[in-house]
Design a protein around this nucleic acid. Sequence first.
DNA 1: CTGCCCATGTAAGCAGTTACATGATTAA
DNA 2: TTAATCATGTAACTGCTTACATGGGCAG
Lengths: 180, 180
Amino acid sequence: MSLPHAILTALLEKPSSGLELTRRFDRSIGYFWSATHQQIYRELGRLEAEGHIRTLPAEQPARGQRKSYEVLPAGRAELARWTAAAHDPKPLRDTMLLRLRAAAVVGTDGLEADLRRHLDLHRRQLAEYEEIERRDFPPGKDAPEDRLRHLVLRAGIDLESFWTGWLDQAVRELGELPEG
Amino acid sequence: MSLPHAILTALLEKPSSGLELTRRFDRSIGYFWSATHQQIYRELGRLEAEGHIRTLPAEQPARGQRKSYEVLPAGRAELARWTAAAHDPKPLRDTMLLRLRAAAVVGTDGLEADLRRHLDLHRRQLAEYEEIERRDFPPGKDAPEDRLRHLVLRAGIDLESFWTGWLDQAVRELGELPEG
DNA sequence: CTGCCCATGTAAGCAGTTACATGATTAA
DNA sequence: TTAATCATGTAACTGCTTACATGGGCAG
């Protein structure tokens, strides 16, 4: 139940249409909460029905017409409530770790290629995050209101750093194993 | 589509009944692929229907009776195929990061308590992993067949280390923010 | 024979994914 | 006027979660 709150956050940062939200979920917010346009439109409908958002006045468009939304006070209150509420962390679920465990039983044939591919993908993502950090958070500046956003970005950077390091080691260890 | 492969891996490591599998998914395998007993029983039914596993002979039990399964050659082949196949990494999806981003908009009131709670949970998980490492992988020993399992455990340890460090910093930064 | 736990299951519902559909706008 | 693209949506399906149901064995 986080998608509606991701959308409320995005709309508070800037009122948007469904497609604009979709684009922003391909970067920015989507870096840690991805969503497709189908999810977004469905959720916008629900949020509007619940009175958490509304279409910007001055527009009452038909199908195929842009529709921009803004957050209502009830929506902001709901987001504040959700942010402060206790949520248990979700247990880790990672396919690559599972595949390595499986490889310990059925062998590592063919695994290395995809490990290298993942390593490359994570290196690219890391570079992208670091570029954003250089651009948006130059050293020694962080205004108070930027602190939290920078902290979130640091999480992304550190996680990608972990994966590149771990995958690199996995590739090296795979090369040293007897069966190849 | 990873649950059936998690189950195949677990059954190859040791033939088990549904409940034994459920217990093992509460530790071990479950550390990076969790599952409830309902999921497991349903999936066991499917895997049997597909000819990937079978109930151990010498048993043909009724409802309420233990039923143990073992992997058939077709199941092992499917697991090997899946392990070697390319899979795109899933984009990160983390509620706590989303909440911090939301807090940058609606304020941080009430957030610190849950940050501290998460920090404590991750510290416990880290300690548990480190205990397993001490027990199962004493320094300088790793036999080749243990290498991969140790690598997977290291991923768990490093991820929990990241979270404890990050959450600790988040708590400290929250304390320094103007609005508290 | 009662209550409790073990073991296996069924049913309902929700979030997310994939494929497809429709109207409006723009460019050739 | 045709094709491409923008923008919003519907429909069907899969996987996971939550709640509940059923039968067997065992301790008091």
